[in-house]
């Protein structure tokens, strides 16, 4: 007599796999919803939507000085010298190379990104989606816009009960030579702020957004000028979509988070 298939027991590897798949699907849908929120906020702030290619040329990252600060391996590098971009804004710089920024303005786009993170832990993914708002124009305007975006996103995170904290930060630059100098300048001039939220415990926080001033660092490398011939100032606001979704799910539970987003529960 044929035995009926064994029913997976709670806690079995099979049940864990099913639960993980459902959670992954839930996180992905939440990330999509969050992206639609950030896109709407960007559009309301006057940002122009850009579309970006799936991969970026290694030569673009070389032009950006990426390897001077982050000499580690790239993700998804192809034989013809392309890879996943470490951040969405590199695509924008590639598109705008040599441009004259006639008026201070903003752009928004979303890309699948890849990074070989030095540290491991929840939310540190090798591939992830990042929406960004890119700011370009006068230094004063870019700085003011960053300030407005910080207030806007803190309020948004608070509306989701995420208990956000805005903290000065610096990139995990390779800490030798000029890259160390860039890190110290970034810290000294408060060029980078991170929005951090508690993840599972109050002591463990996860950075879910960053607010960055690039001054004219990238403008010099991609030849971006203002109408008066001076270097453009640039900056960016970045949203790690899976990190936002993970934080929201950890705070509310996946079902409540999905209900908040107007999605069906898993």
């Amino acid at each position: 007599m044929a035995m009926p298939p064994a029913k997976p027991r709670e806690g079995s590897a099979f049940a864990d796999d099913v639960r993980q798949s459902a959670e992954d699907a839930g996180i992905s849908a939440l990330a999509n919803w969050l992206d639609s929120c950030f896109r709407a906020l960007a559009k309301a702030a006057g940002a122009q939507e850009i579309t970006v290619p799936a991969l970026i040329a290694r030569s673009t990252l070389e032009s950006a000085g990426y390897f001077e600060s982050f000499p580690g391996p790239l993700v998804g590098e192809t034989a013809d010298g392309h890879c996943l971009s470490p951040a969405t804004c590199y695509h924008w710089y590639a598109q705008q190379k040599g441009a004259v920024i006639e008026e201070s303005a903003s752009w928004t786009g979303c890309a699948l990104c890849g990074r070989k993170e030095v540290e491991s832990g929840p939310g540190r993914l090798e591939t992830f989606r990042m929406r960004e708002v890119i700011l370009a124009g006068s230094e004063t305007w870019v700085r003011e816009q960053r300030q407005e975006w910080m207030a806007r996103i803190v309020a948004f995170a608070e509306s989701l009960l995420l208990a956000p904290t805005l903290v000065p930060a610096s990139d995990p630059f390779f800490e030798r030579g000029e890259a160390r100098g860039r890190k110290l300048l970034q810290q000294l001039k408060q060029l980078k702020y991170e929005l951090r939220v508690p993840l599972y415990t109050p002591e463990t926080t996860l950075a879910i957004s960053s607010f960055n001033l690039h001054e004219n660092f990238f403008a010099r490398r991609f030849n971006l000028h203002r109408v008066d011939g001076t270097w453009a100032s640039t900056g960016c606001i970045a949203f790690g979509l899976e990190r936002w979704a993970l934080a929201l799910s950890a705070k509310l539970g996946i079902d409540q988070a999905r209900r908040l987003a107007g999605l069906e529960s898993t």
Binding site: A179, R180, G181, R182, L184, L185, Q187, L188, Q190
Partner: peptide, 29 residues
Amino acid sequence: WIDSLSILKLIAFIERMTGQEIPDEQVVM
């Protein structure tokens, strides 16, 4: 005025003057 190389030189010069290392966390405005 002070770029990423200059700040390293500036810190090194101050360290030589004082004889003490400046930890990165003290490099604030």
